[in-house]
C-alpha cells in the first residue's frame, strides 16, 4: 500500500498539487487519471521519489519516503519497478542486458541465475527469444513489454507505469493492460498507473484517483464511473462525443429509463 498524505507541490509561483490525500491499495491496479496539466505526472514522480513534495508525506506501508535515510531509500528502490512512457530502455544495451541491468547493479547472482530470471521475465511478458535484439530493432509494443520485464525483474512490491498505453494500437494497449493486471494479481503488488486511456479506466480501474487542477476530484472503482454524478469525472470520461453517445444509448436501454 502507498499513501499520499497532504501532498502539495509548487514550481516557483505555480502550484501544481494542492493537497492530495489518497491511498493506493496493494493487490489492485490503482489509476491516476485526469486532463493534461492536472498534475498526474508530478504526483507519480513524487510518489516514486523523483520529485520532492513541497509539503506532505508519502508512505510506503509504514515507511515515510520523505524521512528515509539514504540506505533505507536504496533498500526501497529494490522494491520498486517502473515502466516509463517512453520505455527508457538503454539504447546501447540488448534486451537481455537491459533486463539484467538492475540485477547487475544490485545482486551477486551468477550469470546463469540472472539469465534464468531474464528468460522468466521475458516469458512472463510473452517476449521469449528476443534476448539479443536492441531496443531499436523491436516495435513500440514489444519495447513496452520489455520495459515491463525490466520493471518486474527484481520482483518489486510496488509497480509504477507512466502512460503505458501511449502510442500503442488498441489491441496492444489492451494486452498491456491485461499484463499489468495479471502481474498485480499474481504478486499482490501495489500498482499505480498514470493514464489517459479510457479503455484502461473501464477495464482495469480498481481504484481510480481523478485529478483536476491539482486536487483530488473523484475516487472510486471502474463500476462506479457510469453511475457517478461527479461533473468533473463526467466531463473527463465522456469528453469524446462518441463515448457520450454510447453512454446515452446505454442509459436509454436500461429498464428504468
Amino acid at each position: 500500500m502507498i499513501r499520499a498524505e497532504g501532498i502539495y507541490k509548487s514550481f516557483s509561483d505555480l502550484e501544481v498539487l494542492k493537497g492530495i490525500d489518497f491511498t493506493f491499495e496493494a493487490g489492485k491496479t490503482n489509476l491516476i487519471i485526469g486532463k493534461s496539466g492536472a498534475g498526474k505526472t508530478v504526483l507519480l514522480k513524487i510518489l516514486v521519489g523523483l520529485l520532492e513534495a513541497t509539503e506532505g508525506h508519502v508512505w510506503y506501508d509504514d515507511r515515510d519516503l520523505c524521512k528515509m535515510s539514504k540506505n533505507a531509500l536504496l533498500d526501497l528502490r529494490m522494491e520498486v519497478g517502473m515502466l516509463f512512457q517512453g520505455n527508457a530502455l538503454f539504447d546501447s544495451m540488448t534486451v537481455e542486458e537491459n533486463i539484467m541491468f538492475p540485477m547487475d547493479m544490485f545482486t551477486n547472482r551468477t550469470y546463469k541465475e540472472k539469465l534464468d530470471q531474464v528468460n522468466f521475465c521475458l516469458e512472463r511478458v510473452s517476449m521469449e527469444g528476443i534476448n539479443n535484439k536492441y531496443p531499436s530493432e523491436i516495435s513500440g509494443g514489444m519495447q513496452k513489454r520489455v520495459g515491463i520485464a525490466r520493471a518486474i525483474v527484481l520482483n518489486p512490491r510496488y509497480l509504477f507505469a507512466d502512460e503505458p498505453n501511449s502510442g500503442l494500437d488498441p489491441k496492444t494497449a489492451i494486452k498491456i493492460d491485461e499484463l499489468l493486471l495479471d502481474i498485480t494479481k499474481d504478486k499482490n503488488i501495489t500498482t499505480i498507473i498514470n493514464t489517459h486511456d479510457m479503455n484502461s479506466v473501464m477495464e482495469i480501474g480498481e481504484n481510480i484517483c481523478l485529478l483536476h487542477e491539482g486536487r483530488l476530484a473523484w475516487q472510486g472503482h471502474k463500476d462506479e464511473v457510469l453511475e457517478s454524478t461527479n461533473e468533473t469525472l463526467h466531463d473527463f470520461i465522456f469528453a469524446s462525443p462518441f463515448l457520450q453517445r454510447l453512454k446515452d444509448r446505454a442509459l436509454s436501454n436500461t429498464p428504468n429509463s
Partner: peptide, 13 residues
C-alpha cells in the same frame, strides 16, 4: 531527455 537517468535513479543507481 529519454528518461534513462530517471529510470536508473528509480532502480537506485
Amino acid at each position: 531527455q529519454k528518461e534513462h537517468i530517471d529510470a536508473m535513479e528509480i532502480m537506485g543507481v
